[in-house]
């Protein structure tokens, strides 16, 4: 790589003497050029291995679990070599009556089932033709199917869903509600990838609530978008790079609302394995009172 750069740009450095400035072709790079140069970095292909683990608890104050979870890790045959495949979903049913878990369970099963069906031939057979739909289309049809199912079979109920499809080194996310996906980097950065569809978040974004007011807002639990609610489900669907060298975390508000980011980071980095890290996160939420169901998925690309 370095050689490549030297060859490309190395020569330019030598003739750059002051007298040539008036040749006037040293215009600053346009935004487009800069972004394309930025885009060139870190693209060397290496075989990576995907590993993941989950943790779940009903919490200390609820008597039943309305969260649902799915984690599936494998590899897929590419044309040159195998690429990592991972499907991770967390759903947090809403309502407080028995339909919460119906909705979250249905959402996870339908979305998970639909996506694995699309990838069936890549996972369990030798594929004969390429995928007709794009990854984002697969996510969208799956989440919409779950939405229609919940509307039909459990009207009135709803659920959050945060689903992540890892293929190679990119993550395609489908998200509605206030469960979250995070990129966690080894230098301590914890960056939410998703945006909560909650009233409190919306009011905060609009500047109607300060951060402190938001913390104590009485309606922190009110969602403005949920799977199963409203005629038209507008899920956020997008693709981001897998956090380089770090972790992808998906969790319900039973974790992120209760345990600070600093403690989340410490729980993960101080644990010897991913599995222990998940357990440690669940314990941290329960130690802090465990007011809600807790669900967490951690995934890491090794190599």
């Amino acid at each position: 790589m370095a050689d490549f750069w030297k060859k490309l740009f190395g020569k330019k450095q030598e003739p750059e003497k002051p007298k040539q400035v008036d040749m006037a072709t040293t215009a600053p790079l346009s935004d487009q050029q800069i972004s394309s140069i930025m885009g060139m970095q870190n693209l060397r292909s290496e075989t990576k291995q995907l590993v993941a683990s989950v943790g779940q608890s009903v919490g200390k104050q609820r008597d039943h679990n309305e969260d649902s979870i799915l984690a599936l890790t494998s590899t897929i045959a590419g044309s040159a070599d195998s690429i990592p495949f991972g499907l991770y979903i967390v759903a947090d049913g809403m309502g407080g009556h028995q339909f919460g878990e119906v909705a979250s369970n249905a959402a996870v099963r339908i979305i998970g089932g639909n996506i694995t069906k699309k990838f069936h031939s890549y996972l369990y057979n030798l594929p004969t033709q390429s995928l007709q739909e794009s990854l984002q289309e697969v996510m969208e049809t799956s989440i919409n199917e779950a939405h229609q199912y919940v509307q039909r079979e459990a009207p009135g109920s709803g659920t959050t869903v945060t689903a992540a499809l890892v293929l190679g080194q990119q993550v395609t996310i489908a998200h509605v509600g206030d469960s979250r996906a995070y990129s966690i980097f080894l230098d301590g950065r914890i960056e939410p990838i998703t945006r909560d569809h909650s009233l409190v978040k919306r009011l905060e974004e609009l500047g109607h609530l300060s951060k402190d007011e938001a913390e104590n807002f009485p309606h922190r639990n009110v969602l403005i978008r949920a799977l199963g609610q409203g005629e038209l489900l507008e899920a956020d669907i997008f693709t981001v790079p897998f956090p380089h060298g770090g972790y992808l975390m998906i969790c319900s508000d039973g974790l992120w609302n209760v345990v600070s980011e600093k403690d989340i980071f410490r729980s993960i980095t101080e644990s010897p394995t991913l599995h222990r890290a998940c357990q440690s996160l669940v314990d941290a939420a329960n130690t802090a009172g465990g007011p809600d169901n807790i669900s967490v998925v951690l995934a890491q690309l090794i190599g």
């Binding site: 693209l43 292909s45 590419g78 044309s79 690429i83 995928l131 739909e133 794009s134 990854l135 984002q136 289309e137 293929l167 190679g168 080194q169 990119q170 395609t172 693709t239």
Partner: peptide, 12 residues
């Protein structure tokens, strides 16, 4: 939009 490493269609 295709994944530069493996050609999977990310979106259309």
């Amino acid at each position: 939009s295709l994944d530069a490493k493996n050609g999977w269609p990310i979106w259309k």
